[in-house]
């Protein structure tokens, strides 16, 4: 009992020590860090040297520490979200100076992803005109003398999508910077579609009740709705009410599809009395790049389902 009381006292003393130390650390006079807040330190470096014409003084630009500079704002848009090789995309940049200081000089760079190149002489700027314009294949640099507080400059330029772009990521970053301002950037993600250089093919086919066992659909051989075809990559395809199906964007190469007989109870694959190869349970298609493959499944009423 006595021991328990002693432990309780110790605990209380420890709590008291914690509380006291907190108050002592916060009751003292404000520190120097706090005093410096709100003040702006203007720092400018000066260099002097004795030249042939006497002492020369060179002054650097001012740097200001402690000033809350509202950063430049940059917005990047394009006239489309997705493009294919051969398309020209028009990008627009809007750079605004919301601060109270002049941004001078203003430098704007735009870095293009792989496979995108500038259309020559396509840069248009309003209302300011750039003093310097450097264009390489994959980057654009514009320099403006100054951007007044509250003013904006709008830049538009065209970019050509080359077939190389399919291998790139389509992410384009523009950056605006000026002395004394934190550089700001704006990305734009363009979805690159393979378009005319796509190598995906299309597979189409039909599931029908074969009456003459030749594997071809003729009049009087109706299509079977809601039949399921499985592809080698796991795609599951459902036939329409006429028994037709089509599958776009299939990677070229050797493709195999098979009929899920469980999806059409009462039917099984029909024998093909003309072509022994078409008696296979699956269809094998060599799909050339951009090509069209066909998978027809002939079915016939079945029996003996308990055998399998």
């Amino acid at each position: 009992m006595r021991r328990n009381q002693r432990q309780l006292y110790r605990g209380l003393l420890f709590l008291l020590a914690l509380v006291l130390s907190y108050f002592l650390s916060h009751v003292g006079p404000p520190s120097t860090v706090a005093q410096a807040q709100g003040r702006v330190f203007v720092n400018q470096a000066t260099a002097q040297f004795d030249g042939p014409d006497g002492p020369v003084e060179v002054t650097s630009n001012e740097t200001r520490v402690g000033e809350t500079i509202v950063p430049l704002s940059i917005v990047k848009t394009a006239d489309r979200a997705a493009a294919e090789p051969g398309d020209v995309v028009v990008y627009r940049l809007l750079v605004t100076n919301p601060s109270s200081r002049v941004a001078a000089p203003l430098t704007i760079t735009d870095q293009l992803p792989r496979g995108l190149i500038y259309v020559p002489n396509s840069v248009q700027t309003t209302p300011l005109q750039p003093t310097q314009q450097v264009i390489t294949d994959s980057s654009l640099t514009l320099t403006f003398p100054s951007l007044e507080p509250g003013a904006s400059v709008s830049i538009a330029y065209g970019v050509l999508i080359t077939p190389d772009a399919v291998r790139g990521d389509g992410r384009n970053v523009a950056q605006a910077s000026a002395p004394g301002f934190t550089p700001v950037s704006a990305p734009f993600q363009l979805t690159i579609r393979p378009g005319i250089v796509s190598d995906c093919g299309t597979i189409l086919g039909r599931v029908f009740v074969d009456k003459n066992f030749d594997g071809q659909q003729q009049p009087g051989e109706p299509g079977v709705p809601n039949a399921v075809i499985f592809m080698d990559d796991g795609n599951r395809i459902l036939t329409d009410p006429d028994g037709l199906f089509s599958l776009a964007n299939v990677l070229p190469g050797y493709r195999v599809g098979t009929l899920d007989l469980y999806s059409l109870p009462g039917y099984t694959l029909a024998p093909n009395l003309y072509r022994i190869e078409d008696n296979s349970a699956s269809r094998f298609v060599r799909l050339s790049p951009g090509g069209l493959g066909r998978m027809n499944f002939a079915v016939t009423p079945t029996f003996g389902e308990e055998q399998s």
């Binding site: 024998p271 009395l273 029996f303």
Partner: peptide, 22 residues
């Protein structure tokens, strides 16, 4: 069997019945 068969029946009525299998 190796290939499917045309549907068997007790009584099959057709001009020129298809062979049983290929």
């Amino acid at each position: 069997r190796a290939t499917q068969t045309t549907p068997p029946a007790d009584i099959f009525i057709s001009a020129l019945a298809p062979p049983v299998d290929s």
